[in-house]
Amino acid sequence: MMRRFLEASVSILSWLCTLCLLLSLFTLVGFLFFKGGSSLQLSLIFGNTAPLDAILLKRQVFEGIFPAMVGTLFLIVGAMCIATPIGIAGGIYMAEYCSSKIQPVLNLAFDILAGIPSIVVGLAGLLLTILLHRYFRENIIPCLFISSCSLAFLVVPYLIRSTQTALESTAPLVRQTAPALGASQIQNIFLVLLPNSLPDILSGIILACGRCAEDTAVIMLTGVVATAGIPSSAWGQYEALPFYIYYISSQYTGPDELARGYGAAIILLLLCTTMLVCSLWVQRKITTILLYR
């Protein structure tokens, strides 16, 4: 009797919990769209400037989130340019070369790096800037380059992990065929293993892009500012979407600015979820294409 009751209550409570989770998610997201849906127009992005002029950098955009979007794009590209080669190379080493003695040590190091709060990574980036400023060149200030480096630190453990698991989960049949035919280990890696696990690696890279786009704490300490326009070089300060949202939430002066904040939040939300869906789709789709061509 007691057990019957327990079983029934577990079942009901599970449904309730899930309902609670989905309800709170939809309330927050729905509220965002309800309040900000009307501000989703071209003027949200470009303000009063003609879109073509803004994109061709002929005129600066003042009352729109275009500079913040461009800043976020630069951040993603910069961070991924640094993180992708290191992450994939590290992942290949972990999966293919690493001896079983040092693997636990490296694994632990990557896990710790993955677990460090992003604000601490940002703090480390700031310290790097201070050191460079003191001992290397006077004109180094927190800038786009430093932020990209810090974001790269943040996502590199994820890239290593996704590459490593992708390579390790290759079927033994695929793994051993090329060496049996006389291929060297390098040939096996570049011609067989990497192409074979490309979908998983690619989906890891897209996930990492999403993390770069959403992270606020790192860039907050390493050079993002509220108004900078489009950065002219990697050594300049810049704007970014997540920071813009945070800034608006604490410093908005009127309903217009607040509406732009809602709009920016919706755009960032759409950007990040699109990337996530893309990564899931890539994982599934490319696998199907490769297998059932």
């Binding site: 080669p85 290191i86 992450g87 190379a89 590290g90 290949i92 080493y93 972990m94 293919e96 070369y97 690493c98 040590v105 490296l106 190091a109 990557f110 710790i112 790096l113 460090i116 601490v120 990574v121 703090l123 480390a124 310290l127 790097l128 630190f153 590199v156 453990p157 290593i160 060297s184 280990q185 390098i186």
Partner: peptide, 27 residues
């Protein structure tokens, strides 16, 4: 070539794990 490439892979892995220590030492 293959031993060079292996060293590059090793360098990447070691570099990232050193970063973990470097952040701590920095702080």
């Amino acid at each position: 070539v293959s031993s060079t490439v292996e060293y590059i892979f090793l360098a990447a892995a070691v570099f990232v794990s050193l970063l973990t220590a470097a952040v701590f030492l920095f702080l």
